[in-house]
Design a protein around this nucleic acid. Structure first.
Lengths: 108, 108
DNA sequence: TTTTTAATTAGCAAAGTTGCTAATTAAAAC
DNA sequence: GTTTTAATTAGCAACTTTGCTAATTAAAAA
């Protein structure tokens, strides 16, 4: 599971696309992370406690899944007082889905 | 990474869809497996040796990746003399992509 | 300023993944 | 029947992931 690069230099297109696939597929390889992502996406915005409450695993474990999703670029987070508010950023996923639909899709 | 179930009983829809996501995302979480899948898909059919030759890692390692892809349902294999011929089966991936495009897609 | 609340980080054990080489299986060629 | 070829399986070490509890950080409330 690769952490999203923080370097500011431009990267060749091929590299970016390999990283894109790696970030997204790795992040989505765990069922809890898929659930979390879908849940945040559907609810619009969620703080960590709301999310942790709704899952079986411990809060710290959820917290780590959240960090993984943020690192992959699939979630954005914003601090609000002592809460952290998470929101889905669909762009990476949309890029990846349309790319792979291009490879494998029968239509679209 | 869950092995695809071999039981013959019908399963509730929800379960099947969770397994679908698990199989596909887990299988695609490794870059070598993505490369192998794309390569087999593009070439139509490939035997194990052809595939192993074109990748850096050892043949047994490639062989295990192939087995993982077959278990996930993304590849089919057929024995031909002493060769094993692999072919991509796009159906699972298409189902998953359109499902997730439904969740996250901006268009389509 | 002390306590409560929201959340993460630290640290660790269990489990899973990956890659290698060596061993094995089984069909084909000789 | 022996050898070669195609491929997998076995076994093992290194690494990563996951989950837990305990400790920590920092904002809000009292």
């Amino acid at each position: 599971m690769s952490k999203v690069s923080s370097s500011r230099e431009a990267k060749p297109r091929g590299i970016r696309e390999i990283e894109l696939a790696d970030q997204v597929f790795s992040a989505l390889a765990h069922p809890a992370r898929r659930q979390i992502l879908l849940s945040v996406h559907n609810r619009g915005e969620c703080n960590a406690g709301d999310i942790a409450k709704r899952f079986e695993c411990s809060w710290p474990t959820t917290s780590r899944h959240l960090a993984t999703l943020v690192n992959s670029g699939l979630l954005k987070v914003r601090q609000n007082g002592r809460e952290r508010v998470y929101r889905a950023d669909n762009r990476l996923l949309q890029r990846l889905l349309s790319k792979w639909a291009g490879y494998f899709g029968e239509d679209c």
